[in-house]
């Protein structure tokens, strides 16, 4: 496309530009949109869920549950070890190999 303007002319074409104005009664339309949004429960739920405070609380609860589960598993393991050690020791004591050849004097 060929034009008769210079690029400088085009770049300067916004000089003395006036502000564009929206259609009248913008406030009424904004108010209607606000009321429409507030009446939709899914938007309210979404807005609540996406709040930073909710996300931080959710992450903290998640970490707490994880910590609790890991801790309880460790304790369980410790208890098993405590019970298992004497049994194992006893087992070792009475461990008799049936294939062991006992040399009789």
């Amino acid at each position: 496309m060929k034009h008769n303007f210079s690029s400088e002319d085009i770049i300067n074409s916004l000089e003395n530009i006036q502000r564009a104005e929206p259609q009248p009664f913008l406030f009424t339309r904004v108010q209607a949109r606000l009321m429409k949004e507030q009446s939709r429960p899914e938007i309210a739920i979404f807005r609540f869920v996406t709040r930073p405070a909710f996300a931080i609380c959710f992450a903290l609860v998640f970490l707490f549950i994880n910590g609790y589960l890991v801790n309880s598993k460790m304790q369980e393991y410790q208890t098993m070890e405590d019970i298992g050690q004497p049994i194992a020791a006893e087992y070792v004591q009475h461990n008799v190999n049936p294939y062991e050849i006992k040399e009789t004097p």
Binding site: F5, D9, I10, L14, Q18, A20
Partner: peptide, 16 residues
Amino acid sequence: HHPGVTLDNREKSAIL
């Protein structure tokens, strides 16, 4: 065409 542009700049501003 921006409504605030003067008539003689209409074509140039559309390109811009």
